[in-house]
Design a protein around this nucleic acid. Sequence first.
DNA 1: GCTAGGGGATTGTGGAACAATCCGACAAGA
DNA 2: TCTTGTCGGATTGTTCCACAATCCCCTAGC
Lengths: 229, 229
Amino acid sequence: MTGVFDALAADRGRIERASAAQRVADLLREHITEGRLSPGTRLSEEALGEALTVSRNTLREAFRLLADQRLVVHELNRGVFVRVLEPADVADIYTLRLALETAGVRALRSATPERLAAVRTALARAEAAEAFGDWVTVGTADLHFHQAIAGLAGSRRIDECMARLMAELRLAFAAVPSASGLHEPFLRRNQTLAGLLESGEIDDAEVELTRYLDDARAVIVRAMTDGTA
Amino acid sequence: MTGVFDALAADRGRIERASAAQRVADLLREHITEGRLSPGTRLSEEALGEALTVSRNTLREAFRLLADQRLVVHELNRGVFVRVLEPADVADIYTLRLALETAGVRALRSATPERLAAVRTALARAEAAEAFGDWVTVGTADLHFHQAIAGLAGSRRIDECMARLMAELRLAFAAVPSASGLHEPFLRRNQTLAGLLESGEIDDAEVELTRYLDDARAVIVRAMTDGTA
DNA sequence: GCTAGGGGATTGTGGAACAATCCGACAAGA
DNA sequence: TCTTGTCGGATTGTTCCACAATCCCCTAGC
């Protein structure tokens, strides 16, 4: 059944417009993960609907999407609020991250060339951004690097799961004051990790990854408790 | 801050009414995972809304919830359909399952007593159901057993992720004709796996788990392709 | 200071209407 | 006969409005 139009069919997604609810959700997600909407903010149906010129119904559909991605919380009869991340949430996120990224590392030998290239590309981007002192981009590239590691498993569901985790994690980053000093030490360790992967030292990479995530979690949790307490 | 009402607070969920959309989604999920709504079925907004006596708005919110859980697919301007699982989906599900359950096995030593008890309980239920020849219940208990294994990691997000995967997997089971012979051989291996966990043989348990999931995937994929082709 | 109750604001849900889109049927042409 | 253009019915996408249910804050009363 495979024909000459397979390449076109693969790009089918490009012609499909997104629904209004989807677009609204995308927009809100962007604002939330970039910190322009701070955690705890109440998202009034009426006010937001007017601001975005969409009806309450459409907005509510968008809220459902975001709630499922844990970026907002929906309290019955009270409305939706930008998610406030507790330190316990961050710990939980890192537990899942470890599981997913470990799965990626372990699948190193059976990873496709594209997946391997994605790891290198993300690291290269982080290094380039560091040269410019652009720490926000370094942070983004860091997330992409680790997403690429989990991606080595070659699983669509793992990819989606990681993407959600990273979006959630940005909520935590937004709560941390100085993003500049946050990523610098971890870039070095990403390079170490990438080196171990390049030389195929899976077990060592796994150990390094575990330590990396433990330390990163500790740093963020501490920053969060320092900031609030 | 912890007081004498902690036990009551833990049951808070029981008194909180769910929204209509949530209830509709729960109802539909039940019908889908139990095979009463076969994959591919179109869920007409008008017909379903009338059958459940809820408005189209409410129904659409429920659809968003189910779509995010991958139990239905939403095609723009065409409607929502009960998800049809491809063999590739099953393979993907098992990749993620392996990652999550492995994380549980590895966290064995730091697992809480409740989490450990959940593993034993699920296994006992499967054995009891086997004695009655109730293979449907064996299948359910099997899913709970593996959910409990992933649960050893003690992570809320891993729990939720597994719960979704299991719901998806039921879609595949629905496509397999004889559920009776499907679970029997795997119950034995669950017992083996549980034994390794009881005696703390983490590495062996991990190996056995990996083989188990590989075999289970192969069985289901074959049953699916046999059934359709 | 605490409790009870009232009023205003917001969400939850239903319903109707219209536009946008899809799909099948039918007709015209090569 | 096969392909292509066009039309019309049916369904979804989105908006708007109405009203009940619920929450939250404020005030009165003890």
